[in-house]
Nucleic acid binder design. Sequence first.
DNA 1: TATGAATGAGTATTCATTCAT
DNA 2: AATGAATGAATACTCATTCAT
Lengths: 207, 207, 207, 207
Amino acid sequence: LDGTAKEHRINYPKQQRSLVRYNYILDVAATLFASEGYENVGTNHIAAQAGVSVGSFYRFFSDKEALVTALVERYINRLDESLPQVTDTSVPMATVVEAMLTGVLEFDRHNASFAQILTTTQAGQLANAAITIHLTLKGWVEQMLKLYFPSVQPDAIHLCAASGMGIVKGMLTMTQPPDLIPFEVVLEEMVVTLMAYVEAFMRKHAS
Amino acid sequence: LDGTAKEHRINYPKQQRSLVRYNYILDVAATLFASEGYENVGTNHIAAQAGVSVGSFYRFFSDKEALVTALVERYINRLDESLPQVTDTSVPMATVVEAMLTGVLEFDRHNASFAQILTTTQAGQLANAAITIHLTLKGWVEQMLKLYFPSVQPDAIHLCAASGMGIVKGMLTMTQPPDLIPFEVVLEEMVVTLMAYVEAFMRKHAS
Amino acid sequence: LDGTAKEHRINYPKQQRSLVRYNYILDVAATLFASEGYENVGTNHIAAQAGVSVGSFYRFFSDKEALVTALVERYINRLDESLPQVTDTSVPMATVVEAMLTGVLEFDRHNASFAQILTTTQAGQLANAAITIHLTLKGWVEQMLKLYFPSVQPDAIHLCAASGMGIVKGMLTMTQPPDLIPFEVVLEEMVVTLMAYVEAFMRKHAS
Amino acid sequence: LDGTAKEHRINYPKQQRSLVRYNYILDVAATLFASEGYENVGTNHIAAQAGVSVGSFYRFFSDKEALVTALVERYINRLDESLPQVTDTSVPMATVVEAMLTGVLEFDRHNASFAQILTTTQAGQLANAAITIHLTLKGWVEQMLKLYFPSVQPDAIHLCAASGMGIVKGMLTMTQPPDLIPFEVVLEEMVVTLMAYVEAFMRKHAS
DNA sequence: TATGAATGAGTATTCATTCAT
DNA sequence: AATGAATGAATACTCATTCAT
C-alpha cells in the first residue's frame, strides 16, 4: 500500500518443542485479540501470557505483523483440512453449501479471532490478513461454483463468489454483540440466503 | 463494556464559524480514518490536517472517542434525512428496498469511513460506534418490515432485520479492496439477495 | 531564584464594580486552592468559577503568579488590621501571645488557603508567596520581642522570632488531616509551647 | 482521598545492577524535587538526568506517584535504621530527644527532599506521601512518650506527639530559605522547645 | 472594556523492538 | 537458543496565555 514493504518473516520451528511453543503463542495471541482487540494487545503481553520471553517471541516472528501472517496461514491450513472438498456434483449444491457453512461457523467457534480478522475493514496491520483469508476463501467458492455452473462466464462466477463472501462475512457477525443470535439460527439463515441468492443469480446468468 | 464509562462530551458549537470548523474536523478525521485506519491517526495529526491547533480540537471533543461519537451522530442525522421514509405500503417493497440501498451506498460514497466504522468488529473505541449505527439502522429496518408484514411475530421481524443488516454490511465491503466491484453492480446484487431472502423468510414465517 | 524575573503585575481596580470582582476572584481562587491544591487549579477554572471570562482574569492579573501575589497582599493587609497591635508592655506577654495566636487561627479559619500557602515548602510559584508572608509575620514578631526584651541582642531576637514562626507554622497544620485536632486545643498547646520556649530562650540570652 | 485509588506499583529490582539504578533514580528525583519543586519535574526529566530511558523509569515505577511512594518507603526504612531505638528509660529523656532530633536533622541533610515532602500541605500527589511519613514518625514518638510517661492517658500521649511533630516539622524549615539558620542552632532550639513543651504538658497531664 | 475561542509547548505514559548476557 | 532489561519515538491530553471581535 505504501511501498515501504518491510520484510515480515516467520521463523518456522523445526524442533518439536519449538513447534509446540510456536502454536501456543498463536493460540494465546488469537484469544487475546478476540477479547481485547488487536490494537490493545502488546507483544510483551502475548509473550508473557504464553509463558515465553519477548526475545523468544521475536525469534519466531520478526514483527507483530508476522504473527498475524502466521495466524492467517494457520487458519488457511486448518480450513483447508476441515472444510469439505467438492470435486464432483453428485451431491446437491444445497447440501454442499450447508456443509461448508457449518464448517466455517464451527471453525470460527474453535479458532479464536477468525471471524474478527476476516471481517476487518480498518486499514492497518490486520487489513492484509483479512484480504488474504478473503481471497483464499473466495477462490474456493469460485472453484465450487465453476463445478456446479460450468457454462457460466468467469466474470459472473467471480461476482457471485464475491457476493457470497460478502453475505457470509456479514452474517457471521450476527453471532456477536449486539445481535448475539445463536449459531444454528445464523447457519439456517445463511443457507437460505445463499441458496436463494445463487438461484436468482444463476437464473439471470444462465447462458 | 467494562463499566468505567468515562464521560465523553462533545461541545456542540453555537457560532456559525465554529460549526464550520467542527464539521471540517469531522470531515478530515473521517477521511484520515478511511485511508490510514483509526488507530493510526493521532489527534495531533487530525488537528494539523484540519488546520487547527490540538487545543481547539479538544475544545470541541473531550476525547478521541468523543470525536467518534460525534461522527456517528452526524452519520445518523444525515442518514435520517437522506434515506426514504416509509409510512405506508402503497409502494412495492422491492422499490423501497432498492431506494434504501441506493441511499446507503450513495451515503457511503459521500461520507468517508461510514462503511468502515459500521463494519468494525475489533474491540476498541470504534466498537461502540459500530454498534450504535448498527442498532439505529436495524431499528429502521424493523419498522419497515413491520409495516409490510404486520402479522409476523416480533421475534421473526427482529431476526429478519438482523440478517438484512448482516447482508448489507457484508456486501457493502464489496466496493472496497480487494473486490472493488462497482457500486451499481453491488447495488443490484444486494437488492436481489435481500428480496430473495425476505421472500423466502416470510414464506416460512407467515402465520 | 533563576534570574529570569518575569514582571508579575497586578492591575488594582479603581472602579467599585471592578473591586468587587477582583476580590471575588481572589476568594474563589483561595477556596479552590485549598480544596484542590494550587497546581491542580487552572486559571480558566478559577475564572469560570468566579463567573468572569479568562480575559477579564488576565486584565486583573498578568500571571497566575500575580494572582498569588495579590492573594498574599490581601492576607497581609487583613492580618495587619485584625491582629492586635502591641505598642507597650503594659499587658503581660502571655496575654499578647495568646491574642495573636487566637487571631492567626481565627484568620486561617476565615481565609481559605492561608495556612497552606504559608507552610508551602515546595519550590514553585507558591514559594515566594510563602516567604513573603513568613517574613512579614516574622517582622511583627521581632518587633514585639524587642518591645518586651529591649536588652536582648538583635541576633537573638531574630533567632527567637524565627523559631516562633517555625513553631506556629508547624502547629498550625495540626488542625488539618491527618491530625484534625480542634482549633481550641491547638491554640492552647501553641500558647504553652511558645511561652515555655520564650521563657527558656530568654533565660539563656538575658544579657 | 477520592476513592479512585489507582494501583501504584513499584517493581522492586532483584538484580544488583537494577537495584543500583533504582536507587539512583530515586536519588536523582529527590534532588530535582528539592531544587525545582515536585510539580516542575517531569518523568522524562528525571529519567534523562538519571541517565536512563523513560521506558526504564516506567519499568521501575508504574507512575509518577509510585516514585513518590518508593521514595517515602526508602525514607522510612532508612530512618528506622538510623534513628536511635528507645526500649527503656535508663537514659534521661532529654538525651533521647536530642539524639532523635540530631538524627532527623542529619537525615534531612543527607536525604534530599525529605523535609520538603514531610511538610507538604498542598493537596496533590505529595499529600499522601507527607501523611505516611508523618504518621510513621508520630507513631514512633508516641511509643517513646508511653515509655517515659506510662501513667498518662493515651489521648494525651497522642496530643503531645502530634504537637511534637508539628514543632519539629515547623522548625525543620528554619534551615531553609529564607531563614537559613545553621543546623546546630536549629537543633539546639528544637531541643529546648520540645523539652520545655513536654515538661509543661506533663505537669498538666500527670494523673 | 470584556469576551472566550484559539494556541501550542509541555507532560505522563505506552509499546514494538533490540541486544547484552 | 533463550532471556528480559532497556530503549525512545510516538500518543493522548492539559493549561497558561493571547488576541480578534
